[in-house]
Amino acid sequence: MGTTPLESWNDGAAKRAIVGFVTSAAAEGSPGFVAPMDRIAVFDNDGTLWVEKPGPVQMPFVLAKLTARLEADPSLAGEWPYRAIAERDESYFRALNDQDPDAVASMVKAIGSAWEGTTFGEYEAEAARYLASWRHERFGLPATGLVYQPMLELFDYLRAYGWRLFVCSGGGRDFMRVICEDTWGLPRENVIGSAPECAYRDGVLVRRAVLHGPVALGPGKPEYVLARTGRLPRFAAGNDDVDVEMLRSAQFALLVVHDDDEREYAYTDATQRARATAERCGWTTVSMKNDWNTVLKTRPLPEERDATGE
């Protein structure tokens, strides 16, 4: 990557809006000034920082675990989401991809039970093994290669102006923490997401089946951000309906629109409310097709850096 800020962003309304906000926020005395302590920027993950189609990166990891449990105990087939797994119910998985609250709630409950009693180290090792072997069915890339280059540049740009960056996703907090440092350059404590309660047993912390707070979707997102940072975000980015509440809580809202079926995907499912709110509230909308001259990550992956010494 070169030294030009936001070089993967085409010169258009979205880039100008970002630069205008960030520079104004840094200029003491300007109407848009944001005090350094309040410079909190929060990003959704799936579909905002990396590719979420044909399904979230975490989903095959979860389904493999639940399928193994179902095979070991067929009586689970009467419960959701095991019933959907047993019957190959595509409508359930579409609802899950659209982050339907009922579908997500049943999945979260099953995930909690599947890893109950597991130490956090054991869970992360399991997730790391999965991520090391998983490849995207269309692009052939590992999960870390599916990150959007323009968003990594936006991270760098915000950091240069003193912003503290957080990721807030409905996905598993502990799953994202496996890759956050090498992929986003974010410390683990800056990753917010759905997570289990923990218990101290025999000298170690283990996962419980109970979710810690609400699922990090919709209203749960600003709730978690406030709990973690003590502040609501001044800059927020998302891509679909479950990000609306987080975007509305911010001073500057960025909505990523997936309209590039050649370099990524073009879809509108679960985005109607977000797009309508963006238009009504004057949010900055990012067209992947028109605003980004590069989509997928061009920085070397961690294993490539190790090999080259760079």
Rank of each mutant, 00 (worst) to 15 (best):
4 T>A: 14
7 E>L: 09
7 E>I: 03
8 S>G: 06
9 W>S: 03
11 D>K: 00
13 A>M: 00
19 V>F: 02
23 T>I: 01
34 V>Y: 04
45 N>A: 14
46 D>A: 04
51 V>K: 10
54 P>F: 01
54 P>S: 06
55 G>C: 00
58 Q>Y: 02
58 Q>E: 15
65 K>Q: 11
68 A>G: 05
70 L>A: 06
71 E>V: 05
71 E>K: 13
77 A>L: 08
78 G>R: 11
80 W>P: 04
89 D>G: 08
89 D>Q: 11
90 E>F: 14
93 F>W: 15
94 R>K: 08
109 K>Q: 06
110 A>T: 11
114 A>D: 09
116 E>F: 03
119 T>L: 13
120 F>T: 12
121 G>N: 11
124 E>S: 15
126 E>Q: 12
127 A>M: 12
133 S>R: 13
134 W>F: 13
135 R>M: 04
135 R>G: 05
138 R>D: 13
142 P>Y: 09
142 P>H: 07
142 P>V: 05
145 G>Y: 01
148 Y>M: 11
156 D>F: 04
158 L>T: 12
158 L>M: 09
159 R>F: 01
161 Y>D: 03
162 G>Y: 12
167 V>L: 10
170 G>Y: 05
171 G>E: 10
174 D>S: 07
175 F>Y: 15
176 M>H: 04
178 V>I: 08
181 E>C: 00
185 G>N: 01
185 G>L: 02
185 G>H: 05
194 S>V: 14
197 E>D: 01
198 C>G: 15
199 A>E: 15
205 L>I: 04
206 V>K: 08
209 A>P: 03
210 V>W: 02
212 H>W: 05
213 G>Q: 13
214 P>Q: 03
215 V>N: 14
221 K>R: 08
221 K>A: 07
221 K>Y: 07
222 P>G: 09
225 V>D: 07
240 D>C: 14
241 D>T: 02
246 M>L: 15
251 Q>R: 15
254 L>M: 15
254 L>T: 11
256 V>W: 04
260 D>W: 13
261 D>M: 10
263 R>F: 12
264 E>S: 11
265 Y>K: 02
271 T>C: 13
275 R>I: 10
275 R>Y: 04
279 E>T: 02
280 R>H: 14
281 C>I: 00
286 V>K: 09
287 S>M: 08
287 S>C: 03
290 N>C: 04
297 K>C: 14
300 P>Y: 07
300 P>T: 04
302 P>Y: 05
304 E>W: 09
